[in-house]
């Protein structure tokens, strides 16, 4: 469990997932985290279909030129307080796609990232850990109110 996470949560965490040009490796690991083996829904973590409902944005991929505006728009549509998790090496640093004419990443250049989940792709455990870290941020913000 991530450091600083309280024993009881103020709210269930709703997650929105956006693919900005990833290879699907991270995306299937995110779904795997939702499926019976890891079953994050038991903690109240749920994937939602609209950014307007979400607390956390999971973003994968190195952000292609076409997706740049859309990623920004999704980020703007999310209500505050919000946290952004960048899943996978390519979104964090570029990784194997370090050089390209059609990429504008890393994600940090486009929207502010709170938690970096490293791995290509990260294991579901790592993704869950990242979500828990984002939770800490949101809980702390909530507590300050």
């Amino acid at each position: 469990m991530a450091k600083g996470l309280p024993k009881s949560f103020k709210k269930a965490l709703w997650v929105y997932h956006c693919n900005s040009g990833s290879c699907n490796g991270c995306d299937i690991e995110i779904i795997a985290a939702l499926c019976p083996r890891y079953d994050v829904e038991r903690f109240g973590i749920k994937l939602v279909g609209s950014p307007r409902h979400a607390d956390v944005l999971l973003i994968t991929g190195p952000v292609t030129r076409q997706m740049e505006k859309r990623v920004k728009r999704i980020y703007d549509q999310m209500p505050d307080p919000k946290a952004v998790i960048c899943v996978g090496n390519c979104g964090n640093t570029g990784d194997v796609f370090y050089e390209s004419y059609n990429l504008v990443g890393p994600v940090n250049n486009v929207i502010p990232v709170d938690v970096h989940a490293i791995g290509c792709p990260p294991r579901p455990e790592a993704i869950i850990n990242a979500v828990a870290k984002a939770w800490v941020k949101l809980e702390t913000l909530e507590a300050k109110k």
Partner: peptide, 30 residues
């Protein structure tokens, strides 16, 4: 993308200043 310059063809081998302008090194943005 729609706003990609008209006369730039990524797979051609000749020098294309238009293409070079677009190249980004992602690791530099970390």
């Amino acid at each position: 993308p729609k706003d990609f310059p008209e006369d730039v063809y990524p797979w051609r081998k000749d020098k294309q200043p238009g293409l070079e302008k677009l190249i980004r090194n992602l690791h530099e943005g970390v």
